[in-house]
Design a protein around this nucleic acid. Sequence first.
DNA 1: CCGGTTTTATTTGTCAGACATTTAAAAGTC
DNA 2: GACTTTTAAATGTCTGACAAATAAAACCGG
Lengths: 249, 249
Amino acid sequence: MKIDPKSKADLSAQIAKAIRDSIIAGDLIVDERLPSEAELADHFDVSRPTVREALKRLAAQSLIRTQRGAFGGAFVNRLSFEDAYGQQITTSTLLLSMNDVSFDVACEARYALERACAPLSAERRSADHLATMRAEIHRQSQPGLTDEAFCASDVAFHRALVDGAGNPVLSYQLAGAVEAMQPLMNMITFTARSREAIVSLHTKLADAIEAGTGEIASETLTELEHYTIDLARSVLAERAKRSTKRPLS
Amino acid sequence: MKIDPKSKADLSAQIAKAIRDSIIAGDLIVDERLPSEAELADHFDVSRPTVREALKRLAAQSLIRTQRGAFGGAFVNRLSFEDAYGQQITTSTLLLSMNDVSFDVACEARYALERACAPLSAERRSADHLATMRAEIHRQSQPGLTDEAFCASDVAFHRALVDGAGNPVLSYQLAGAVEAMQPLMNMITFTARSREAIVSLHTKLADAIEAGTGEIASETLTELEHYTIDLARSVLAERAKRSTKRPLS
DNA sequence: CCGGTTTTATTTGTCAGACATTTAAAAGTC
DNA sequence: GACTTTTAAATGTCTGACAAATAAAACCGG
């Protein structure tokens, strides 16, 4: 575990990289204790604050956890699916919000990935996930629901669909795609009529899953994709028209 | 931008969270300069090293970048697709290696996601991506290739397939699924016969993409999935048998 | 007045040393 | 033997200082 003395990068970044590489390579295994900060400082020939900055970098990626007190220290963390979900969602959300990805592109990606889950969900349909989907459909039918609440329920519905595939790796990969869409969807105002259409498609989707017909579920997802894109387009067009009429409002 | 004085978590973690939330909420926009470390220390009523630890946490997530010198400081970073790829791959790789995810589950997720890309790739097939796929197939046919090199070429082939969909969001999401499989695939020893079978399926896949028949491409991916899983099973079974015969070797 | 050079102020990067706090093992006590 | 106290080790935090980089500002020669 060494650092390059010629590199001009931050020492804390170099040290973090050295430790991270050791973890990825398996030289440091889960729950293994790293040397104390003082020992690391000695080893890398830097001061303790510098070592601490490196450790905080790793902690930010959930690669290590720290514990105070005697026999405490920094331990290699088992990256849980939950932690990975969180990072995935944060990264995806920021990626979309900072790179003016078009609604169409994001939407296409999201539904393409969901269609990948549909056959598995249909095959392994569980009462639990189906119940969640039905419950969210019911919530979406409630009048007086705010647009935000409608979107949140939409996310929950799709999460249930994805989790229904029973593959945690798939759920992890999809988490970003589904959740990161929410801020984009939140820009849409859902009229009573569009909500009705979406609920209808959701019902069709749940029915297909329940019937175990993945093919129909996939097709329904395609319908939903097209409907969502059309909806977004009309909302954007409406907004553009208004700003043309009243450019300074 | 405030922190909770009652929380018992690390101050640097709280400060990092406060700033991160501001970025996600859009209160801090891309390329905006954060207050200097001294000002932040003053604002949060902590010392500069504590602020620095918080900033390093954010830097580890590529949320900020720092620049030394007058008029330098910490700036909100535009999360690039490249950065996001890297994080995605690191996280996915560690997730698989630390949670003894079965080969079958990882493989299923990977091919399910790839099948989501296949129709788009077939529809938008570009000469560039097709050429890459053909080149990798050719490389895979070379005798004397190490197993590692074969796996690396396999990843490159599938990356081309995924990128061929022409949707950067999809490419980003898939990066983890495809690349994280490599360490698992590397455990397999590819015989001449199995390589031949894989190259044959890759060729079929490239042909299907070139012909614009996404349906066939998807089916070929399913074939490839089953073949890969069978291959892994036989390798593992072989290994188990040997360790039974020579338990202490 | 212009172009190049030097100065200077600002900010991050790093270090040294100190103290506070937490924690669990070890020692002590009834 | 069970409970309490002590103690050592580790992280968390602070203070103060200096080094290095950097761009604006000041300066200067032509």
